[in-house]
């Protein structure tokens, strides 16, 4: 949802705190479920992640989540799926060259990162996504160190 995603990057500091508070328990739950049931609930857990992040960030389930490094703005919403943006085509009003009704994802990202405690991580270079992971869960991968 576009409005929610703009809200998310505007409140990146708050979401960063939530992330740091909630992340260990999410990973613990995933590890617990894996221990008890193996991979039987992978599908369900992936759907939960997709729904939660979908509402809040317009998550595209790239399987390689970098939200905490990109000011809580999902780079996969960039029409060129740039992982190290912005491109040079941003309009003078800050909107996207390709989709004139959308604010540039990477302007949101840099602004969001500036509000975050560990926002400097946006200066790290992200390599291109591994397309084999598309549709898969970042939480599961993180929890299992895959």
């Amino acid at each position: 949802m576009y409005a929610a995603r703009l809200w998310a990057s505007r409140h990146s500091r708050f979401l960063e705190q939530v992330y740091h508070a909630v992340n260990p328990s999410i990973l613990a739950i995933v590890r617990g479920v894996t221990k008890l049931f193996g991979r039987r609930f992978d599908g369900a857990m992936t759907s939960i992640e997709a729904a939660a992040k979908g509402v809040l960030f317009d998550c595209k389930m790239c399987g390689d989540c970098v939200l905490s490094k990109t000011g809580m703005a999902c780079p996969m919403n960039c029409p060129k799926s740039i992982r190290n943006g912005p491109c040079g085509g941003v309009r003078a009003n800050g909107r996207c060259e390709v989709e004139p009704n959308m604010r540039c994802v990477w302007i949101e990202a840099w602004n969001g990162a500036a509000r975050m405690k560990k926002g400097d991580a946006i200066n790290d270079i992200e390599f291109a996504v591994d397309h084999r992971r598309t549709g898969s869960s970042s939480w599961l991968r993180l929890a299992r160190n895959e």
């Binding site: 029409p79 060129k80 799926s81 992982r83 190290n84 291109a128 397309h131």
Partner: peptide, 9 residues
């Protein structure tokens, strides 16, 4: 559109 990479990758 392909965009497998961006300019930095």
């Amino acid at each position: 559109p392909v965009f497998d990479f961006d300019s930095i990758s």
